[in-house]
Design a protein around this nucleic acid. Sequence first.
DNA 1: GGCGTAGTACTACGTCCCGTAGAGGGAGGG
DNA 2: CCCTCCCTCTACGGGACGTAGTACTACGCC
Lengths: 107, 107
Amino acid sequence: MDVLWAERSPLTAREVGRLIADRDLAPTTVMTVLDRLTRKGFLTRVRDGRAWRYEPAASRDAYIAELMLEALDMTGDRSAALTRFAQAVSGTEAEVLRKALTELEEE
Amino acid sequence: MDVLWAERSPLTAREVGRLIADRDLAPTTVMTVLDRLTRKGFLTRVRDGRAWRYEPAASRDAYIAELMLEALDMTGDRSAALTRFAQAVSGTEAEVLRKALTELEEE
DNA sequence: GGCGTAGTACTACGTCCCGTAGAGGGAGGG
DNA sequence: CCCTCCCTCTACGGGACGTAGTACTACGCC
């Protein structure tokens, strides 16, 4: 669903339908989906003549980060979960995390 | 659902029903839920006489960490999402992460 | 030894979300 | 004036989930 969408950064309208013509969906289907995503706050829409122009409300990365935080909220012991997580990521990704944290510290 | 369950570490059977008597659910309801959680791999069950004894398949923390990794898998750019995440956690939690990563490095 | 009780498996029903789509309305162009 | 485009509203099938009932089995007591 959002997969299709969240990838392309530029804003668009029902051109989305053109972009995913391979799945040949009814035009209304695409509209319904965009509409529902908007209702859920994943997309933002702006009028453009009689059509709408949709835009992601947040970057994909921000959305993912939010999902991760949401998962984290489900536990009582956030530290334990975080530690677990740190242990679970691969070496290179641990490196990325470390770097991000370091930069954070420097600000 | 798992909320009730995943909190208590010790293993149990239909005593779960006793433990959540406040929600006064039919005994069968509790059983069905435990059964479904087992099917989905969240719980492990062992025979104990004619009854079953349920036990979490993974610790809550491990489960949360897994959820976070799952979210991370949804992006194309894992590094970007990780960086975002690192920036999003609160200061104290960033500290926890840093510590976990450092210990990881030392091993 | 039969009968109540505890525990299990199987099935069901309402609800909600999601992917898909159709039917109907307003607005611009030929 | 009609056609086309795009929008809104409503719908339907499927799957998950929370809740629960029914049917079967095995203990154990009297």
